Amino acid sequence: MAKLEKTGATFTIMNGYLEGRLTDTEGAAMLLASARETVAVGKRLGVQRLNLHGTGLGDMGVPIPKIGAFAPGMVVRARDTLNRICDLAEAEGVVFTLENLNPIDHPGCPFGSTTDVLALVSSINRPQLRINLDLYHTQIGEGDLIRWCEACLPWIGEVQVADNPGRCEPGTGEINYAGVARSLAAMGYDGPVGLEAFAKGSEDAALDAFRSAFTV
């Protein structure tokens, strides 16, 4: 922490928990306790947004635990858990984001799809909970990126990008990120866009490609 503080860097988002899940009472208690600790860490770095998933992610992003099928009460419990997260966020003056994932890299993650994340966040509809719209995951799970941006727009807290396949910088795969950037600007989106990717070549070149794609 001390080393990070000394860099003088601006940190816009960080992981908002270390353990827990949305789907059951025990997991919710773990998530809330972990989120409280993480908020305190984030405040030292000036972080205003803290990221969540439907459950914990282990090595290589494998969900812990994997959820094979949805029980009828899982949506109700997830909404209750996220409302409690919102209460914590309101008290602490921060915002939590719920990130969409994809079923190839993260099989068995509850509430991982763009569809599920939008349904949860929009049904709660509180300013303390936004969507971390990861377009790399959306491309794999659903495609149709621009229309998903439009659908999620009122609740987006951050947009994250990487190209597919390979999860490298824009221009290395199939996604027309320059077109996505123009569409986001036309929609009026002026929030943060983060590059969450590997560098195919040098890191400087990857950052230049990202800036070029999202300079509108």
Rank of each mutant, 00 (worst) to 15 (best):
G141Y: 00
A151H: 05
C152L: 02
A162K: 05
A151E: 13
R167P: 04
N164K: 05
T138Y: 00
C149L: 15
I140P: 00
W148L: 11
E142K: 00
V159N: 08
D163P: 06
A162F: 05
P154Y: 05
L145V: 03
I146Q: 15
C149E: 04
E169L: 11
R147C: 05
E174R: 12
A151W: 01
V159T: 07
G157C: 11
R167C: 08
V161R: 08
P165R: 05
G141F: 00
R147I: 11
I140T: 00
G173E: 10
G171T: 10
A162I: 04
Q160N: 13
G173A: 09
P170Y: 11
W155E: 04
P170L: 10
E150D: 14
P170Q: 12
Q160R: 05
G173M: 08
I156G: 07
G166E: 11
C168H: 15
G171Q: 11
G173C: 08
G166F: 11
V161N: 09
Q160M: 13
I156Y: 03
D144F: 10
G166A: 09
W148M: 12
E169C: 09
W155L: 04
D163V: 06
E174S: 13
A151I: 02
C152R: 01
D163N: 07
R167H: 11
C168T: 14
N164D: 12
V161E: 10
W148S: 13
C149T: 01
E169Y: 04
P154E: 11
T138D: 15
C152I: 01
N164F: 08
E150Q: 13
V159R: 02
G143H: 01
R167V: 06
G166H: 10
G157W: 03
C168W: 09
Q139F: 02
E158S: 12
C168F: 12
T138S: 15
W155I: 02
T138P: 01
V159P: 02
A151S: 14
V161F: 10
L145N: 12
D144H: 11
G173F: 07
E142Q: 14
D144Q: 14
G141R: 01
G143F: 00
E169P: 05
C152M: 15
I156F: 01
T172E: 14
V161A: 08
D144K: 03
R167M: 08
V161Y: 11
I175H: 08
A162R: 08
R167Y: 07
C149Q: 03
A162W: 04
L145C: 07
T138W: 00
A151Q: 14
G171E: 12
P170T: 06
I175G: 09
C149N: 03
C168M: 12
A162T: 05
N164W: 07
I175K: 06
D144A: 13
R147W: 10
I175A: 09
G141E: 12
P165H: 07
G141H: 03
G157K: 04
V159K: 06
G157F: 01
G143Q: 06
E174P: 02
G141L: 02
R167D: 08
P170W: 10
L145M: 07
V161L: 08
G171W: 09
C152H: 03
E150K: 14
C168N: 13
G166I: 07
L153A: 14
R147D: 14
N164L: 04
P165S: 11
G171K: 09
G166S: 12
C168Y: 13
P165D: 09
R167G: 06
I146K: 15
